[in-house]
Amino acid sequence: MILVSRRFLNLITGKFAQAITLWPFIILKSKELRTDRSLINHERIHLRQQLELFLIGFYLWYLIEFLVRLAQKKDFTNAYYAISFEREAYLHDLDFGYLKHRRLFAFFKYI
């Protein structure tokens, strides 16, 4: 389900993100982003990742990996883009059939 809430997104991401996925919702910053196919596909990849790790596992892993990357990269943006979940989603957000052929735990190869 897609929701739009600029205020919530800014609260959670500090104005960094255009969207966030919190199972089962994709939360967008603006209504116009509903037509951004690559963004929606990117967030759907995150939905699949979240299911694979039973939600809590995903959020814990994401946080831990972000903190490790942040310690390595010393920069918020570079740390974010180095997270395995984000690497997979960004590399495949223009492949609109990706989720049909994606293997379980595909994010492992991006660690």
Rank of each mutant, 00 (worst) to 15 (best):
R48M: 07
W23D: 02
L67A: 08
L51T: 12
D95P: 07
R44K: 15
N78H: 10
K74P: 03
L11F: 15
R34E: 14
R48G: 03
L39I: 08
I111W: 15
L47N: 06
Q49D: 05
R87L: 02
L104K: 12
Y98M: 06
Y81R: 09
I56F: 14
Y110W: 14
V4R: 03
L91G: 00
Q50W: 05
T77G: 03
L60G: 13
D95I: 00
L33Q: 09
F85Q: 01
K15I: 10
H101S: 10
A79D: 03
L51S: 11
K109A: 08
L53Q: 14
K15M: 07
K31V: 12
I26Y: 02
F58Y: 11
E65G: 06
A82Q: 06
Y81C: 11
K73T: 00
S5Y: 09
L3D: 07
H42K: 08
Q49G: 04
I2W: 13
I26A: 01
Y98E: 03
L67C: 11
R48N: 04
R37A: 15
I111E: 10
F66Y: 14
H46C: 01
W61L: 09
F25P: 00
A19S: 14
L22R: 05
G97H: 13
H42Y: 11
D95V: 01
W23T: 07
I111V: 15
E32L: 13
M1K: 11
I111M: 15
R69N: 14
Q49T: 03
Q49V: 06
L33V: 10
L67H: 11
D36Y: 10
K100R: 15
G97A: 09
D36M: 08
F85K: 01
L51K: 15
D93G: 04
H42A: 02
E32I: 12
D36L: 06
I40T: 06
T77D: 13
F108D: 04
W61N: 03
L94I: 04
L91Y: 00
N41A: 06
